[in-house]
Write a protein that binds this DNA or RNA. Sequence first.
RNA 1: GUCCCCAUCGUCUAGUGGCCUAGGACAUCGCCCUUUCACGGCGAAAGCACGGGUUCGACUCCCGUUGGGGACGCCA
Length: 488
Amino acid sequence: MSDNKGEVVVRMAPSPTGYLHVGSARTAIFNYLFARHHGGKFIIRMEDTDTERSSEEMTTAILDALRWLNIDWDGEIFHQSQRFDIYRQYAEKLYEMGKAYYCYCSPDELDAKRKQAQAERRPYRYDRKCLHLTREEKQKLDDAGVPKALRIKTPLEGIGSFNDIVYGELTRDFTELDDWIIMRSNRKCTYNFSCVVDDHLMGITHIIRGNDHITNTFKQITVYNAFGWEPPKFAHIPLILGKDRHKISKRHGAVSVTDYKKKGILPEALFNFLALLGWSPGDEREIMGREELIKAFSLKRVSATNPIFDSVKLEWMNSEYIRRMDDNELLDKVRWVLIDAGLTTRLSVESHWHYMLKIVALMKERVRTLNDFPRLARFFFTDNFDYDEKGDKKHFKTPEVADRLNALRDKLSGLNKTFEINEIEKAVRGLAEKLNIKPALLIHPTRLALTGLTFGPGLFELMELLGKEKCLSRLDRAIDYIKNKFRT
RNA sequence: GUCCCCAUCGUCUAGUGGCCUAGGACAUCGCCCUUUCACGGCGAAAGCACGGGUUCGACUCCCGUUGGGGACGCCA
């Protein structure tokens, strides 16, 4: 298992107790980028030992999110829930080595001690009561069937330290560490212990994880030391904070990768954005593709400060990706959003692919997320829209507007052979000249009549795409509407 | 409460003692382009938390203060 001499092996170890949130996704990205940069391996290990909270669905959901982000991993996925025996074996080995001891204290008892320590303003440390039990006392407790957990012996004094790739030398007084439990009374090992056993067995060379694990690292190092194993290198990466500057969590609204997918964010954009949270290439590049990121990535350039997740910038980056994306590829994604919005059907998209492509090309410049398409391009799919309220007041102001639109209608219906952009523009501008008004006075009401909106793509290209029939009928509708409005 | 960590524009960041009159990006605000919106172009406003040192010289090094974050489970 650990035959990867000289090679980089990293891992991502999510616990399947919820959807993949952006913090874990970012950890995955850093690990992935690091592995690919060095031509090493990226392993996934499901930390599903908490059988109460873990679920199969979440495992699937996390993997799906990773696939969506186009993050691939090496080898089979490990499940800690299938490795309880291994951990137990190692825990018992430690006991036999005299580096661990059984503790019979009840959770209530421990809880009380912990509270007392806090009240007395001193750090809590297990008092080693059970370490000093005599053989007879232990026997008695065992006979009585009192549950026992296994604790690791941590040095009573001295300084523990390790060299973190991001934070540099990190130290902690051993008196701050206690003889923590490595195996529960139900004989299942705890996270900090199983984690070390796995990382060692799997030949992990670099552990890249959130800086909320720094305390765990000190604990885990005592396990490496107890076994005489060489610890891997550690890189604790800054934590992503929400707008309120707290560790990002559910109460920040959209936090899972799936949430952003639903919001119409492109995976490439999210990947790029997350890679730049706490890391930068050192030059002024921002829009960077996967290969470019792999090439540039280095743990040494990871920042030590916790960044705040700025969804506005994410959306900007997303708009950049949408704009640069190939039309066919984009339409392939946009169609589902359009179908979901009830604006079209699968069949219709397929039979009108070429036409749809034109719509996408026209809209992609003014859209930030995929979800903007149904909102801003609605008029291409249905006649069923209202006039924008402000636009109505501004552009359908007088009965005269109806007359102008009527004149335009007549002129357009005269365009028999072709209904294409140049002809349309000529017609509109020509009419404006004839009526001796500024073209804008004709253009704005027309746009409102045809789209219900006061903004959007260029009017003439829009009209060409809409086609003559629709333009005429919508002008008619607007003319009626305006006349109705001013009827006394 | 205890321990650890962090500190450059509102936000993401560049910056490793003189290149800084602190650079870029998002957001904001002008102007230009223009039928609108968006794009694009040009420009503005906006920051080294504070106080001590060290040094000929500190955004950069040290100490303190303040502020922020994280960890303190028979959860992971």
